[in-house]
């Protein structure tokens, strides 16, 4: 196979894959721009005859929708922040200290990442119920943190690994204690890794459905993903276009964040993969 044919096949595979993910999104865009009457025309009206932004206007002026959106931002941001705060000292220790059982411990941390929340959600529910923490944002944030910590530890550890220990030694000789060194040298230099971990956790939290769905029931506490699901379940086809608009508004922040910061994320993930 000539390189040219290989390139073409690569592009073809890329296009197929992109179509697989883009089609539902485009379908959502199409639906969200239609009038209620056009919704029934299905695929025949992929490009609406009279595109309207009314659906978005209706969604964005709805007070409840704003609350759901805010709830989602709050849960994700605090969950992501908590995960990064908890993961940072662990990552520092993993990067800088040698101790017995470090290898198995790091693999163990990664294995936690492989446990789906689905598997532990029932014991988790009973557990939080016993603690009286159901119906509380705090419990959801705590679970988001727990979900985010393993990946964050690894990501931030790799970030720390790329910082030469000589910089910390130079700072020690310059008169810094360990806390000073961490605050003034190591953390500022690990900022790309910290930011990437935060953003990845935000995105993971944003797409989280099961945890808030099980742990929260009061309407005013729900994040956007659960609220949309509840709305879809309780409404008829006449509100499909509104649902589509709501979904888009819910998806766009995560997409925007990822697109804007993908370089940063890729750099953090790739750090240490090649010799710097």
């Amino acid at each position: 196979m000539t390189p040219r044919v290989g390139d073409m096949l690569t592009y073809l595979a890329g296009i197929v894959l992109a179509a697989l993910f883009l089609m539902p999104l485009l379908w959502l865009v199409s639906l969200s721009l239609r009038t209620p009457a056009e919704v029934y025309l299905g695929a025949a009206r992929f490009i609406p005859e009279a595109p309207t932004l009314d659906n978005f206007r209706q969604i964005l002026t709805d007070g409840a929708f704003g609350t759901y959106l805010w709830n989602a931002v709050k849960l994700c941001a605090l969950g992501a922040l908590g995960a990064v705060i908890v993961a940072t000292p662990a990552a520092y220790a993993a990067s800088r200290f040698t101790f017995r059982g470090k290898g198995p411990l790091m693999v163990g941390i990664l294995m936690v990442q492989m446990i789906s929340p689905l598997v532990v959600i029932i014991p988790l529910y009973r557990y939080l119920d016993r603690l009286g923490m159901l119906e509380s944002h705090l419990s959801v944030i705590a679970v988001y943190m727990a979900i985010g910590v393993p990946l964050s530890v690894w990501l931030i550890k790799v970030g720390f690994d790329t910082i030469p220990p000589a910089l910390e030694e130079a700072a020690a000789i310059d008169g810094c204690n360990r806390a000073d060194i961490l605050m003034r040298i190591t953390l500022p230099l690990a900022a790309p890794a910290l930011a990437s971990a935060f953003i990845l956790n935000m995105i993971m939290g944003w797409s989280q459905f099961l945890v808030p769905f099980i742990l929260l029931t009061r309407d005013g506490q729900l994040p956007i993903a659960v609220a949309i699901y509840n709305f879809a379940g309780s409404s008829s086809a006449s509100t499909t276009q509104l649902l589509a608009a709501a979904c888009l508004v819910a998806v766009v922040p995560a997409l925007a964040a990822f697109l804007a910061l993908q370089r940063l994320i890729v750099r953090a993930i790739m750090a240490g993969a090649v010799k710097g």
Binding site: L167, A170, G175
Partner: peptide, 20 residues
């Protein structure tokens, strides 16, 4: 005493300048 208390200065092989 830790490095901070010894009042020594060191020039490292790779310079160890703070890049930020």
């Amino acid at each position: 005493q830790g490095a901070a208390q010894r009042d020594v200065a060191m020039v490292f092989q790779n310079y160890a300048l703070y890049p930020h």
